[in-house]
Write a protein that binds this DNA or RNA. Sequence first.
DNA 1: ATCCCTTATTGAACGCGTTCAATTATTCCC
DNA 2: GGGAATAATTGAACGCGTTCAATAAGGGAT
Lengths: 247, 247
Amino acid sequence: MFKLLSRTNVAGSEVSHPQPLAFQAGEKIGSRETTRELILNAAIRLFRERGFDETTMREVASEVGVALGLAYYYFPSKEALVMAYYERVQREHRIVAQQNLPHTRALRDRLAMLLNTKLDILKDDRKLLGALFRYTGSPDHPLSFLGKNTAPLRADCMSLFAEALEPERLPDDLRELLPLLIWALHMGVLLYFLYDASPNLRRTRRLVDGSVGLVVGFLGLAKSPLLRPVRRSVMTLLRDARLIPRS
Amino acid sequence: MFKLLSRTNVAGSEVSHPQPLAFQAGEKIGSRETTRELILNAAIRLFRERGFDETTMREVASEVGVALGLAYYYFPSKEALVMAYYERVQREHRIVAQQNLPHTRALRDRLAMLLNTKLDILKDDRKLLGALFRYTGSPDHPLSFLGKNTAPLRADCMSLFAEALEPERLPDDLRELLPLLIWALHMGVLLYFLYDASPNLRRTRRLVDGSVGLVVGFLGLAKSPLLRPVRRSVMTLLRDARLIPRS
DNA sequence: ATCCCTTATTGAACGCGTTCAATTATTCCC
DNA sequence: GGGAATAATTGAACGCGTTCAATAAGGGAT
């Protein structure tokens, strides 16, 4: 189907190969970005090994050899570490996706590729990814994945889905609607991934395949001019709810 | 449309009128249920007034006049207070729903009534309801609303939706599928409610109306024997994903 | 009434996320 | 080089959710 890029093929990957500590005891810590990166890398490594809640910020700071307060100088909270990491994941996913999209013709394959490569990147991250959902019910929290502060991240993710849809012949309303719907599906898949205890995430992968198939099938149906009033109703509803912008 | 029961009409309501402190300073605290209820009621009241995070467990205990540790004797965590409250909400909702269902014929009205009465009950609870979503990303946590410990609560909620669907002529597969789908919609509505800043939750109410309309419309379409293979695909997918039981 | 077992309650303490005043280091401009 | 401003770093402390050993209270059996 789509060409899986193996981990080693992602040049300069920030995510999959967190850099080892770049200095030894007694050596002076480098620049601002270096310290911040060190802390982030150490945190992600420890979160992966032990779990998010099971790792303390004291351990993270100690791992880098800095004072606890320094972690808070660079990151406003423990969860913000995970969010910073997820932003990296997003960046890496964009790179991978844009490498694969030119070689993937069928929409079904394109969408499946997007979801599966995301899962590939995140496959070792179940012990920390859940922390991203912590503020789901807190509308004003800066880290709420549905809140206004994360709107750029959402938009970025949706733009990837929009890119995958680009070659398709779609009515304008569907072209506008689908990135949101696929983003929502993608969030559902990530959630499912967290709950999936099957070997090698088999069930999650099958869910991806199956749901992408249904989306593409639904799309074939929904394109019909006969269903234009229905599409219009959906668009109206979502606009009223401010889930998509007013045109 | 449906008959709205006003708050005062719900006899013996546990939710809407948290009982005042049943004793005065120096008076001996009553039985186990009384103390537990006192703590829960005080907590919910304070959470409503101040917000969940803004209220400390020390304040809750102090409000009842007991030691901090006693709150933890009765409730395993701060969030567990909110979950206990939500279980009450569920019970009250069932009562209200079962009073209204016999007088509501059209499916659209039945579904809208279920969602709207839920919102009625929860309307003052935005400051605390978000806490229920805190463990969304923690599959093994007892309070995860998607986890196994909350399966009875989910099933109970879905059974209400199944009841609303009862009079409808539906193919078996749809009859099995729809409670889950409507439950998911209901969760989406609750989430939306948390984020909705419109006056009197206007936008949430409109979302309810609109989405119920779409569900009913979709249902009309989905019933068609022509779409049986699609329904079968959906059922297969959800069964494989273990989101509905295998038949 | 006494004893024993279970439940309820307490107050002190723990630990972790977070904060912050003080200090040190770095950078830029003259 | 010196001074000022800014950024980085520290270590101590706070406070809140949570825990727990000790104690008190309640209930049942003898």
